[in-house]
């Protein structure tokens, strides 16, 4: 997995509530494209007009946000379908960190699995950041995992929380699978004991 230390770049305010993963990427794209080819299809429902041309009214079509590495988002970002392709599409677009008051639970986990950083901050703080981003779109923001802060241009750093285990994993580019494989013996012993307690769980239909 790619590690994540920090990202510095334009922060695009996309403040709608309940942005769902169907809108982030259509299921159809995931059946015929590889993850890194999904960039042009991120938010296609909102990004293009019916004739296929970019809709200038959509924020991610407006420079410098075409090069955004940070999204400033509304509550429940990434709700809905479990499709990890939503994370792949945003990553392929160039997004590295998303700052929202809350996230869809499966999307949130999927971000960590792909070296991307979800940051939870209170909604009023994000509103304030969005105000700055709109006033000075070219001024870079920073999300720094090492220091656990969001740094707006010329502003005071805002601290954020992240579990130590997840922070370590992102900083070092470790995924859960490598660590769990080392616990093979522990899993086997759990299974042995649990098979006594709940045999039906281990032998479907017997």
């Amino acid at each position: 997995m790619d590690p994540f230390h920090a990202t510095t770049g334009p922060a695009c305010p996309l403040m709608a509530a309940n942005v769902d993963t169907d809108v982030i990427v259509r299921i159809q794209r995931l059946t015929d494209l590889e993850p890194d080819a999904l960039g042009p299809y991120a938010f296609e429902t909102w990004r293009y007009r019916p004739d296929g041309t970019p809709d200038p009214a959509f924020v991610l079509n407006r420079p410098p946000w075409t090069d955004a590495t940070i999204l400033l988002a509304g509550p429940n970002f990434g709700c809905g379908s479990s499709r990890e392709g939503a994370v792949w599409a945003l990553k392929a677009f160039g997004i590295r960190a998303i700052i929202a008051p809350s996230f869809g639970a499966i999307f949130y986990n999927n971000m960590f699995q792909n070296g991307m950083m979800p940051v939870v901050l209170p909604a009023p703080d994000i509103e304030a950041l969005a105000g700055i981003a709109r006033a000075q779109p070219d001024a870079p923001f920073q999300v720094d995992l090492q220091r656990q802060v969001v740094v707006p241009p010329n502003g005071t750093p805002l601290p954020f929380e992240v579990e130590a285990r997840r922070r370590e994993a992102l900083l070092n580019g470790l995924d859960d699978l490598g660590l769990t494989l080392k616990r093979d013996a522990q899993i086997t012993s759990f299974e042995g004991a649990d098979r006594q307690a709940r045999p039906w769980a281990h032998e479907p239909g017997a």
Binding site: R83, E84, I106, N109, L177, T180, L181, R183, E191
Partner: peptide
């Protein structure tokens, strides 16, 4: 019962567990 993403899915296939 709950839904998982692709990486978590691979984790279950390989280890029959989830974090």
């Amino acid at each position: 019962a709950f839904g998982i993403g692709s990486t978590e899915l691979m984790h279950v296939l390989a280890t029959q567990t989830l974090v």
